Each structure stands twice: as structure tokens, then as C-alpha cells.
Amino acid sequence: MSNNEHRIVVLGAGYTGMLAAIRLAHRTRRAGVRITLVNPSDRFTERLRMHQLAAGHTLVDRSIPALLTGTGIDFVQGKATAIDPGARTVDIDHGTATLDYDTLVYALGSATDTTRTPGADVHAHTLNSPQAATDFAARLRDVAAAGGSVTVCGGGLTGIEAASEIAEAHPTANVTLISREEPGAMMGPKARAYLHRALDRLGVTVRSGARVTKVLPDAVELDTGALVASDLCLWTAGVKVSPLARDSGIAVDDRGLIAVDSTLRSVSHPDIHAIGDAAAIRMAWGEIHGTCQSGMPSAQYTADTIARLLRGKPAKPFRFGYFHQPVSLGRRDAVIQFTQADDTPRRACLTGRAAVLYKETVSGSPVTMYRLSKRMNVSATLSKGGRATRRPAA
């Protein structure tokens, strides 16, 4: 390695880390930059499809080194276990290897949190990894064959998609979706009504307005005192992030997300850029919540910003607005709620076969973007939020 090379280390090869690394490689190909991508697994996880895997469908096996072919990016398989922001080093697997960096991109993402409800960490499954989803699918086959009960806890988009997929693929299972709020509460009336008709058609029982207080081996307990039979429980409520940033002395918010400025750089260590679920990002209209829809634009922006900084140009503030809420309802149905920049619903929505095609395009777009980004600057941003993001966040 030349002493003049600028060393960039990207932690995490999920949706955001992959795009940041590949786009950086293209944008800095003549700038004397060495990029290293670090991830515990050498397989790329399509988080948008984990509910399909949980229902027993087979997904394409994607190799991270294969996706990086032709980029010049060094791939290190291992887990980042410590960061020394002063020395600008990252320890891999508790000191097995150490990487030096000049610029660090922190893209470790988030996972479902099972620690806040008693029994969830012992008796509930998650979609936190392909292995977790596969383990759930194996158990689901036996439960469905016996006509058993399946509970999906959490009525957000992930819970809705999982309950729909499970019910469609295993009609002999009794599927119950448990949620504090009405499923689809974030949608407009038309899309929400369509969603509920689809759940009814698939035979999903909805228990809304209730909070799960305990997960038992054969039931979930609600705050009303009721017990819901559960031979198999899937937990999709609540998120947590890696403690690595906090443990390394990087400024974080009360959830452990890295506190960033308007250019997505750490407020305590400007040579660290945080993207996706790992960053506490605020727009003038409010705080961004972690989704692939917001994560991919933050990765695109950060790659472009680092390239600008290396050329001695100033960084422009990050701008983003939500555009849609795509929800699959099994393999043959879907609903797409179009939104304002702050994720509140517009009047327009898309349903049925057209929505299925739309959702499949959305789910497949990251891998397509990685391939295109090796040779051209393609955009992952559907909306920059309009006027609402032209003024600084409060």
C-alpha cells in the first residue's frame, strides 16, 4: 500500500454499507484510495426478503466477494469489536486483526430487540439473519402440518408482511398478528382498508390495541391479561443497534445511534460517517426512521460526500424525503401507499397485481444498483423532501 493512499474502512455490508463501498470505489477510482469492507458473513442478506425466507421460500444466495468483483475493494470477513477513534483503528474479532483508517463509514444497521419483553429472547424467533429466518421456517412446517397456532408480534410493515406470507404459504396454520396499533395505521384510509381485506382473505386474525407482556412456550400474554395460544412466535417489534459506537467513545443518542451533523459526520469525530439505521438523522420535518428507503440515499450521499472532501470541495447537507410505503401481502398481492416527505400518507395508493410488480422492483433494486454503481453514478434517492428539507433541521 502506498503511503499516499487514503484508507477508507466501511463497517457493515448490508444494504447501506454495500452501496457506500461500491459507489465510493467508482467515485474515487483515480484518487489514490484504498477501500476495505468488513462484515461477519461473506453472504449478502436481503433484509427486505427475510419474511419470504421465514415462510419457507428459497432466496438467491448472494456472495459479497462476487458482488464486489471488479471494484478493487478489499473484503475482510470478521466482526468489528472495537474502534479507537484517536488512533483511527478498528479491531476485528477482538484483536485478531487491526485495520487503520483515515475515513470510517459506520453502517452496522439494526436488529429486532427481544430483550424488553420477558420470554421473547427465549421463546420467540426473529428475522435478524437468514439463519434465524430459516430456523423459523423449519419449525413452521411442523406447526402448520399439525394445524397449530403462529403469533406474529408487531404490527409494523415487517410484521404485516410476515403474517401475510406465513398465512398464504401455510393455510393450515392459525396465524394471529398482535399489535399495539391498528396494522397499517400509518397508511391512508383506502390503503389501510385494502390491507385489512387482504389479511381477512388470508385468514390472519388481528389483535390490535394490545401489548405483549410475556412470551411463554405455548402462548403470549397480553396486557389485558388474555393469553393467545402460540405454538410458534415471531417477534418483529422494537429495534436495537450495536453498542460498538457507544463503547468506543463515539457520541451517540439515547438509543445508541451515532449523533451526526447535517453532512452525516459524527459530531464528536468528523472522520467517521454514519449511515442508515446506525445514524440519528434529522430533517427539518423530523427524524428519519430506519428503512432501506432512507438508508440507501444516506449511503449514496456519504459516498459522494467523501469523494467531494477528498477533492477539497465542501460537503452539502443531506436531504431526504420519504416517497412510499411498499407492503407485500403474500406472493400475489401488495399495497403501496405513496407518502409526503415526512412519511404521512398522500391520497394515492397502488394495489393488486400492479402493486406486486412495484414491490418486487423495490425489493430487487439494491442488487441492481450495486451492479450499475460499479460503472456509473445511479441515484438511490426517490425524493429529497422538497421545500421541507431546504431549511436546516431544528
Rank of each mutant, 00 (worst) to 15 (best):
D271G: 08
V33I: 07
H273G: 00
L68K: 07
G32V: 10
E46A: 13
L11P: 09
A219V: 11
G72Y: 14
L232R: 04
T176N: 14
P40W: 04
R308D: 15
V10G: 03
C349H: 15
T236P: 09
G276N: 10
N128H: 03
G203H: 06
Y15C: 00
V327N: 11
D343I: 02
R331F: 08
G14F: 02
L99W: 01
Q300S: 15
D271R: 12
V228I: 08
V327M: 15
T176C: 13
S129G: 05
R375A: 05
H94G: 00
A55H: 07
R88T: 11
Y301T: 07
G295L: 10
K79M: 14
Q325A: 11
V239Y: 09
K190I: 12
T134F: 02
G290L: 03
V378K: 02
G147R: 10
G95C: 01
V38Y: 00
L24F: 02
M376N: 01
M376K: 07
L108G: 02
I35T: 12
R387K: 15
T96L: 03
G119Q: 02
P65N: 12
A124I: 09
K214C: 13
L232K: 05
P65W: 12
G147E: 08
A185W: 14
A210N: 09
D61P: 03
R139M: 13
L357P: 00
G70C: 08
W235L: 07
M296R: 11
T361F: 15
T112N: 04
L68P: 06
V33M: 06
S294Y: 05
G330T: 06
P189M: 06
A146F: 04
L244I: 06
P297H: 08
I275M: 09
S373R: 02
P171S: 13
D277A: 14
P65Q: 12
A20C: 15
I275V: 15
F320M: 04
V378M: 12
V212K: 07
T263L: 01
A251D: 12
A13V: 01
L104F: 04
P85M: 10
T81F: 06
L108H: 04
I83Q: 06
M376A: 14
V239S: 11
H6A: 12
R116D: 05
Q325G: 03
T339M: 12
R211Y: 12
Q77C: 10
V204W: 05
N174D: 13
H170L: 02
L67G: 07
R30S: 14
K190G: 13
T89C: 10
M187W: 01
V241R: 01
S41F: 00
C292I: 15
E161Q: 10
